[in-house]
């Protein structure tokens, strides 16, 4: 297994000459779960694209460096809001897609173990259309875990799920991604309060680091401190939004 690594982002981004956010200075701590909150359109997802080198349309003026000084390329895996499963592949083959895309020998044993761990064994031969939204996101998690990368970027992966499935997915993900450096973009203060070991709030005026509730993650949904933090985050989010 890989060890985790922190990331330091410093600078500002613009698209076609229009600045997205004020210059920011963000340190994502190694092995921790960092949540990034903020109003829509402020560039939260752009930040993920910048980290994963997908933001060819964005002009970033600054530096993005890993704490160990090595390049980030090849050390990142990514989970999006939609599950991005290929409808023509079985669940097992979807889990193996990363290795196949790189031309590596697929490790079927490992994929089957992961699917079993996530309660998906009986579905491994099924196709995505036969699964529920929550199950599909679990497959996406299996695919992400299969990559064994130190850094995991999450772009609102649970936002399309119903409340109960979302809470389940939060717990499952926190359990399986423990020890990895996670940057989780979310628009849900409750999610940030439950999962964040660091909570950032990005708005047009720049980045703020918020206070984090006490207790280890995943925090219980009814924990008073977590609920208070959630309320506080929502309040600030509404202020910056208006």
């Amino acid at each position: 297994m890989s060890t985790s690594v922190g990331i330091h982002i410093k600078g500002s981004a613009s698209i076609a000459g229009k600045q997205l956010f004020e210059p920011l200075n963000m340190h994502i701590k190694a092995g921790q779960w960092s949540c990034l909150l903020g109003p829509s359109g402020v560039g939260k997802s752009t930040l993920l694209y910048l980290l994963s080198d997908l933001a060819s349309h964005v002009n970033f003026d600054g530096t993005i460096v890993a704490d160990d000084g090595l390049p980030l390329a090849g050390r990142i895996s990514y989970m999006a809001q939609t599950d991005l499963l290929m409808p023509w592949l079985s669940i097992l083959d979807n889990t193996l897609i990363g290795q196949r895309l790189r031309g590596d020998k697929p490790d079927i044993d490992k994929a089957e173990k992961l699917l079993a761990g996530l309660g998906l064994s009986e579905h491994s031969k099924h196709h995505p259309s036969q699964l529920s939204g929550g199950q599909r996101q679990r497959v996406a998690l299996a695919r992400t875990l299969m990559e064994e990368k130190e850094i995991v970027l999450l772009d609102e992966p649970f936002s399309a799920l119903d409340a109960r499935t979302r809470a389940d997915m939060q717990e499952l993900s926190a359990q399986w991604l423990e020890g990895k450096t996670v940057l989780h973009v979310t628009h849900d203060p409750a999610e940030a309060a439950r999962l964040g070991e660091q909570i950032f709030l990005l708005s047009e005026s720049g980045l703020r680091q918020m206070e984090v509730p006490t207790g280890a993650i995943v925090r219980p949904v009814d924990d008073p401190d977590t609920l208070a933090c959630q309320g506080q985050l929502l309040k600030i989010l509404r202020e910056v939004d208006s």
């Binding site: 694209y49 080198d53 997908l54 090849g74 895996s77 990514y78 999006a80 290929m86 196949r100 895309l101």
Partner: peptide, 14 residues
């Protein structure tokens, strides 16, 4: 899908 593939380090042919 293309983004996912790129992050996974896909070879262009694959």
């Amino acid at each position: 899908w293309l983004d996912l593939g790129k992050v996974m380090g896909a070879a262009p042919r694959q």
